[in-house]
Simulated assay, not measured.
Amino acid sequence: MRDLATRRPRLAKLAAEVGKFGSVGAAAYVVQLVVTNLLWANGVQVMAGQVLGTLCAIAVAFVGNRFWTFGDRARTGYGRETFLFLVMNGVGMLVQVGCQAFSLYVLGLDGPLAQNVSGNVVGVALGTLFRFFAYRTWVFPPQPEAVSTRPRDSALPEDGRAPRAQ
């Protein structure tokens, strides 16, 4: 991994972010599975249980992603980040619940295994792909590059001054 980090630092950084994001996601996923299945076992409607379990997972994911996964990225304001995080998770949750609804209402699969596969495997996987790219792009943007006044492909001398005309 060290060799990769020196040869391809951007790829190594992406791999580290994916690993951290996956760890946070795994913890949030466990929370979501436990809460959702507990609610279903206690008679809560399928869709309501799925939404409530997902909301609990969103809270866990925000803390982990803001302070650990993307902790080295630009801080654009707690309110802005929270708002965008919730919006992106709303879209991700719609993807997840859409998979659940398709399985339940279109395919007629209403058993516990079908509910878990459609909402907690397929839905979570598709929603997670969306969330990762949305977090990296909009919620926790990269640090701005230092602005250089000197052009990259410059024929100027090291001191940055243009040669005098003769």
Rank of each mutant, 00 (worst) to 15 (best):
A114C: 02
M88N: 03
V30M: 04
P142A: 08
R150L: 12
V51T: 03
A57G: 13
V121T: 12
Y135C: 04
A74Y: 04
G90A: 07
L94P: 02
G19A: 09
L52G: 11
R10C: 14
A155G: 10
A27T: 11
F130K: 03
G64C: 08
R7K: 12
F130Q: 07
A26D: 07
Q32D: 09
K20S: 06
K20T: 06
R152S: 11
V44H: 05
R8Y: 12
G160C: 03
T6D: 15
V139P: 03
P144F: 02
F102I: 10
A59Y: 09
V31A: 08
L84H: 02
L107T: 01
V121H: 08
T149F: 15
V97K: 01
R7Q: 14
A27W: 11
F62L: 05
C99Q: 01
V18P: 15
L14Y: 09
A59T: 05
G22Y: 06
M93W: 00
T36H: 07
L109E: 02
F70D: 00
V97L: 03
T128L: 05
L104K: 11
F83W: 09
V106H: 05
F102L: 08
D153M: 13
R66W: 04
A61Q: 07
F140A: 01
F67P: 13
A125D: 03
V87N: 04
P151G: 04
P112I: 03
M88V: 07
V31K: 09
T76R: 06
F83I: 11
E17D: 11
A12Y: 10
A165D: 14
L129S: 08
S118T: 06
P112E: 06
L84D: 03
F102W: 05
R161C: 09
V51K: 03
T149H: 14
R152L: 12
E145I: 10
T6R: 15
A57H: 06
F132T: 08
V91S: 01
D159K: 05
A16T: 10
T149R: 11
T149E: 14
G43R: 03
R66A: 05
V24P: 04
V147I: 07
R7T: 13
F132W: 08
P141K: 03
A57M: 07
D72E: 14
Q166M: 15
T36D: 08
L55E: 12
R136Y: 08
